[in-house]
Simulated assay, not measured.
Amino acid sequence: MQLAVRNLHFSYRRRPVLRGIDFDLAPGEVISLLGANGAGKSTLLRLLLGLLPPERGTVLLENRTLTAWRRRELARHLAYVPQVHVTPFPYSVRDIVLLGRLPGGSLFRAPNAADHAAVAAVLERLAIAHLAERPYTEISGGERQLCLIGRALAQGARLLIMDEPATGLDYGHQLRLLERLGQLAGEGYGILMTTHHPEHALIASSRVLLLRDGRIAADGPPQQVVTAAAIESLYGVPVAVLHDHAGQCIAFRPQAAGGA
């Protein structure tokens, strides 16, 4: 499964938001999408999921426009993972993941043995089987994020669209989540995630897209794309680069006065 974005344009009330967006998302990739607030990241995600119609251009899944897919059929290939949230109802972790099986059957059909087996396999894969009977409202933010990823995997989707998956997580959970995304890519999943953390893009991505003024300003390997100049251009703040012992950029800090 491959997602292809071709010459995508979108406007809100005649105000251009996206202008000529082009890229592909293939199995085995983790693509990080960086851009300032208002750059159009959320709009782009909605277009990729078929929730908004493009003004011009197209989004293709396996060379078919999204409108050519039935919604249930599309959900078996393309899944959305939102930011961590807390449902007002104390569903168990198992039940939240089980919701991912809905696209595979009737809304009114009780889950069958195959559904329960698929959910059990996902819980084991994400190492959260021990949480299966815990209320979703009572587990940590990092565990909730894995639960939401599990729901997407239970759909059977191989392409995951993720909206700032590390938001609200402590540092340890952020790193564990990024490691898990790398493992999923190694298993053949294609992942596109938005992030406001350039360091996350450096750690977890095989490619990085920079979105500025409604256009893809750069698309390439993290070490080539995520630079001090790029960060200043995106966010309007000068930064200094921190390198590891091999000379690779690993983090940024605010630029000291005078450019030191």
Rank of each mutant, 00 (worst) to 15 (best):
N37R: 12
N37I: 12
L48A: 04
V30P: 01
T43E: 11
S32E: 01
E29Q: 15
L52F: 14
T58I: 10
G28M: 03
G35K: 03
D24N: 14
P16C: 09
K41A: 01
L47G: 09
G57Q: 02
L34N: 01
Y12L: 14
V30C: 11
L33G: 04
G50K: 01
V30N: 02
E55F: 01
A26Y: 05
L18Q: 05
R46W: 05
L47S: 00
L33E: 02
I21C: 04
R19D: 11
R15V: 15
R19N: 12
R14W: 01
L44M: 14
K41H: 10
E29F: 08
S11H: 12
D22R: 09
A36F: 01
S32C: 15
S42I: 10
T58F: 00
R13I: 10
Y12R: 14
L51N: 13
E29I: 02
G35R: 01
P53W: 05
F23H: 06
A26G: 09
V17I: 15
S32Q: 08
L18M: 03
P16I: 05
G38E: 12
A26K: 14
L18H: 04
P54F: 03
E55C: 10
R56A: 15
P27T: 08
L44I: 07
P54I: 09
G57F: 00
